[in-house]
């Protein structure tokens, strides 16, 4: 049995639903905040995810960081050393998707060459009539960045577990990979 711990950054533009998703993660899909209240700093939530078919689990320390441009720089100081990335955009806002590459750049620079597994999440999938970003386009970009793609609806509580499970699995396989490397090291 192994209990892993990972610091997971929730990033993306303001109002794409990062906090709604993180509360959904945290409450196992029972709590959707109906009123919008902008996150102006950094909120920390802890969520334990079991890796299916093993006795192992990953404790995710989810850092819900403000998306508003003017606040990002101050918040970045509180990101710390990241283990995982959950990048969120709004399926009904082409702009929020376009800005994802800027977010990737910022996170990459922050991590200084450390490999940080991640997922791309298109949120608000319930608003299908207003969709501006096609799944295939998002999927393709995610792949080019080495991210796994998921679509969610925090409001309809749809598919909200999927990104977390995918992050936990990615960290778990990174651990196993590193453990194997360490087992094969020669003495100093």
């Amino acid at each position: 049995m192994v209990k892993l711990r990972a610091r997971c950054l929730l990033a993306g533009d303001a109002a794409v639903g990062k906090s709604a998703l993180s509360h959904m993660f945290h409450s196992d899909g029972t709590l959707f905040q109906k009123n919008y209240s902008m996150t102006t700093g950094v909120e920390l939530l802890m969520k334990c995810v079991n890796i299916p078919e093993t006795n192992d689990s990953v404790e995710l320390y989810i850092i819900d960081s403000a998306g508003k441009e003017t606040l990002v720089e101050a918040c970045e100081k509180m990101w710390g050393e990241l283990s995982l990335l959950c990048l969120v955009f709004d399926l009904t806002s082409e702009q929020s998707f376009a800005n994802c590459s800027g977010w990737m750049e910022r996170v990459r620079a922050h991590c200084q060459g450390l490999q940080v597994p991640g997922v791309l999440v298109g949120n608000k999938s319930d608003l299908s009539a207003r969709r501006e970003v096609q799944a295939s386009v998002a999927q393709e970009w995610a792949q080019s960045q080495g991210l796994e793609y998921h679509e969610t609806s925090a409001r309809e509580m749809e598919n909200c577990d999927a990104p977390l499970l995918s992050l936990a699995r990615a960290f778990h396989s990174l651990y196993q990979e590193r453990r194997e490397t360490i087992q094969n090291l020669s003495p100093g």
Partner: peptide, 12 residues
């Protein structure tokens, strides 16, 4: 024994 080890499981 340097063949056996303790490994950290994430975060510092």
């Amino acid at each position: 024994n340097t063949k056996t080890f303790w490994m950290s499981t994430g975060m510092f």
